[in-house]
């Protein structure tokens, strides 16, 4: 608990206490803890001097913030146009079936979070799935299944 407290302080110290650093701080906290816990949200508000309503409004507006803990592994199915034409919707649906969660959600055991993203900019390899930091180009339902079994 104590260690965590110093860590959040260290993150807060990266930015001056001005409202315009709200999003940067939320991003850093999201990156560090995988989600934005209510107590951290309050600390950020105090630091940059905005009411909780503004931080909550921002954190629920942008897609990259999560108010609940995310899974250990992030699965991101690219649903850019090129990937869509090459069957990304079928990939997303098969992952929903296999993992038993809808896109945008995390499995109960907190192993996997499943998301669709607008475009990863690697259209040459459509359809593309990103699992953590690995790009899987020309992805197939079976290929993804195999990959997930390995991790």
């Amino acid at each position: 608990m104590k260690k965590k407290a110093t860590e959040i302080d260290a993150i807060l110290d990266r930015y001056p206490g001005e409202p315009r650093y709200l999003i940067s701080l939320l991003q850093d906290v999201q990156a560090e803890y995988n989600y934005i816990a209510p107590e951290n949200m309050t600390l950020i508000c105090d630091h940059v001097g905005v009411p909780l309503t503004q931080a909550w409004s921002v954190a629920t507006f942008y897609k990259s913030f999560s108010l609940e803990p995310r899974g250990e592994h992030e699965i991101r199915v690219c649903c850019g146009t090129a990937c869509h034409l090459k069957g990304s919707e079928r990939l997303a649906q098969s992952l929903e079936r296999d993992l038993g969660v809808e896109r945008g959600h995390t499995t109960e055991d907190l192993r996997f979070s499943l998301d669709t993203v607008n475009c990863l900019g690697a259209c040459a390899l459509a359809p593309m799935v990103m699992i953590d930091d690995d790009y899987i180009g020309g992805a197939t339902q079976r290929g993804i299944r195999k990959y997930l079994k390995k991790i």
Partner: peptide, 23 residues
Amino acid sequence: VRAISFGSRGVNKQVATPYMVPN
């Protein structure tokens, strides 16, 4: 006082208090 704000966006947009608990 800014007790309420918009939350989420698009078709999910709503007027609410943070975490939807009394503020």
